[in-house]
Amino acid sequence: MKARRVDGVIIGADYVAANGDTANKIGTYSLAVCALRHGIPFYVAAPLTSIDLSLSSGEEIVIEEMSAKELLHSRGGLGEQVAASGISVWNPAFDVTPACMISGIIMEQGVITKGGSDLFNIKDFVGKTTGNSQQ
């Protein structure tokens, strides 16, 4: 990105909240920050089943935490201890990228855009796609 050899970033997502915030594997947020810093469009590609309209924003996404052993022991937690005993570990499986950092959300049915505003209208997209505007 720094060398200006990247024209856009497309990542996947496990969850899409009603406002367009997305959750994906750790490191996705960092890519979004880097893309934003370099003025590169950042897109999320996800299936319609990733949308959860019951989540108003990414703050409501429950972030799964992985075992501390994955970081404290060799071979992904299966081997011998390699870290000092008694240290604290936080090992989240996902991070959340705010909708304000996302250029568009690519779905099987089309691309959800912000339509001239800073907000995604996920609910309307789902309603038009499924034929149920009361979602």
Rank of each mutant, 00 (worst) to 15 (best):
R5L: 03
V6P: 02
V6Y: 08
D7S: 12
D7H: 13
G8R: 14
G8C: 13
V9I: 15
V9P: 14
V9Q: 11
G12K: 13
A13D: 01
A13E: 04
V16Y: 01
V16C: 11
V16G: 05
V16T: 09
A18M: 08
G20P: 00
G20F: 01
T22S: 14
N24S: 15
K25N: 08
I26V: 04
I26C: 00
L31H: 12
A32F: 06
C34F: 13
C34T: 15
H38Y: 01
G39H: 09
V44F: 08
A46P: 13
P47I: 03
L48F: 06
T49H: 07
T49P: 00
I51S: 06
L55A: 07
S56E: 07
E59I: 11
E59N: 13
E60W: 03
I61F: 04
I63E: 02
E64L: 08
E65F: 14
M66I: 08
A68W: 01
K69Y: 06
K69Q: 12
E70S: 05
H73L: 08
R75T: 04
G76F: 07
G76T: 11
G76H: 10
G77K: 07
G79I: 11
G79H: 11
E80D: 06
E80W: 01
E80H: 03
Q81E: 02
Q81M: 06
V82R: 15
A83S: 04
A83L: 05
A84Q: 13
S85W: 14
I87L: 08
I87K: 02
W90K: 03
N91C: 12
F94R: 14
D95K: 14
P98Y: 05
P98E: 05
P98S: 04
A99G: 00
A99K: 03
C100M: 04
M101R: 03
I102Y: 00
S103P: 00
G104Y: 03
I105T: 15
I106Y: 05
M107D: 13
G110T: 05
G110W: 03
G110V: 08
T113G: 08
T113M: 02
K114G: 14
S117Y: 07
N121Y: 10
K123P: 00
D124K: 15
V126F: 11
G127F: 06
K128C: 03
K128I: 04
T129K: 12
T129R: 13
T130S: 07
S133E: 15
Q134H: 12
